[in-house]
Amino acid sequence: MAEMKKIATRVSYGNTLVELARQGADNLVVFDADLAAATKTEIFRKEYPDRHFDCGIAEQNMIGVAAGMSTMGYVPFVSSFAMFAAGRAFEQIRNTIGYPHLNVKIAATHAGLSVGEDGASHQCCEDIALMRTIPGMVILSPADDVEARAAVIAAYNYNGPVYLRFSRLPSPVFHDPETYEFQIGKGEKLTDGYDIAVISTGLMTSEALRAAVLAKRQGISVRVINMPTIKPLDEEIILTAARECRRIITVEEHNVLGGLGEAVCGVLSEKLPCYVRRLGVQDQFGHSGPANEVLRDYGLSAEAIAAAVREIVRPDHNTDDSANQ
């Protein structure tokens, strides 16, 4: 079986901006903060230099300028590393985009631990938590090139603030561009299974799929659910998984505090309590190293997910699911 093609979703982002402009999105403008080569907005800049604005290392100002442009009928995409887009500019996002509910798209690249050698100062594992607290903010975390392209298009067509999370590390392309359909607020069941459900997002979805294959070899059926929208969350697919699988693992390249795992637990604790284990960054900072090695160090690999699956489904593991009986 041929190895899947790998593309970083930040590249998908840059390519889709050009695609939108070519298809007639004349109101699309792009802002960057001295990182166009890294965020891949340089792809757009080369073809549409008059619609690309480099604000320098001044992310907070960039948010304010984009907010103003949105009030004039433009659809701004602002781009920087997640650490700076969500972290440094949080107040401006809250007050100048979130509060007036302006039509600005925040495209954050280099999210999570997979920034690798740049280390803890640039490995943003708190951005989803920050953006979830802003009322009305949509949060999209695509898993591969096909989904990332669809997410950018959906963000452009959506009227309101959107936070898009992209990775530096290339990820396997497992969606079929001919059949895949993206809808904001909808999760996606990738594999069927009833022993346990693994709900993943972003870069971790390909690892969850690999883990399901490893578990299947040991007779364990794993339902893999891809969750490209963190907010609004697809409650229906989560509740169905809780009813049918009774045990859930969430996997994210983000702090377990405030991310996908807590969002899933919030739904289940109110509507259908069941056993949940959150795999992610366990309230720690990252460290420098090759991206894949860093991910393994923090338990974010197919092998680690499969090990958690085996532990939870073993007969002597206590997962009190009496609430589901």
Rank of each mutant, 00 (worst) to 15 (best):
R277Y: 13
T109F: 02
V115P: 13
A151T: 00
R88G: 04
G219S: 03
T250C: 03
H254W: 10
V18T: 00
E181R: 10
R210D: 14
D283H: 14
P76N: 08
R243Q: 14
V213W: 03
S167K: 10
A143Y: 03
E181F: 09
G136S: 05
A36E: 06
K186F: 03
E91F: 01
I230Y: 02
L295K: 02
V281T: 06
A150S: 09
Y13M: 10
D176L: 06
A306L: 05
S79N: 14
V138W: 04
L130Y: 11
I196F: 07
S114D: 15
G202Y: 03
M69R: 07
A108I: 15
A89W: 05
T201M: 09
F90Y: 12
L257Q: 15
E19K: 00
G119M: 01
A85D: 04
S114M: 13
T96L: 09
S121K: 12
A129H: 08
I128F: 02
L239P: 02
I7E: 06
H110E: 05
V115D: 11
E253I: 09
A242C: 06
T41R: 00
G202Q: 09
Q60K: 05
V224M: 05
L260E: 10
V162Q: 01
S200V: 14
A108W: 11
A151E: 00
E126Y: 02
V104K: 02
R310L: 15
I249G: 05
P142V: 02
T179D: 03
S121N: 08
K105E: 01
F31W: 01
G187D: 03
F53S: 14
S171L: 14
N61L: 12
G136F: 05
D26T: 14
N103W: 04
G160K: 02
D195C: 12
E311Y: 07
H122Q: 13
P161A: 05
T191R: 07
Q218A: 12
R168A: 12
R278S: 12
I106M: 05
E303S: 14
A37L: 07
F84L: 02
F31M: 01
A263L: 03
R210F: 10
A323Y: 15
S171C: 13
N95Q: 06
L20K: 01
H287S: 11
Y156R: 00
V267A: 13
H52N: 06
E178M: 04
A25M: 00
A36R: 11
D192G: 12
A2R: 10
E47T: 02
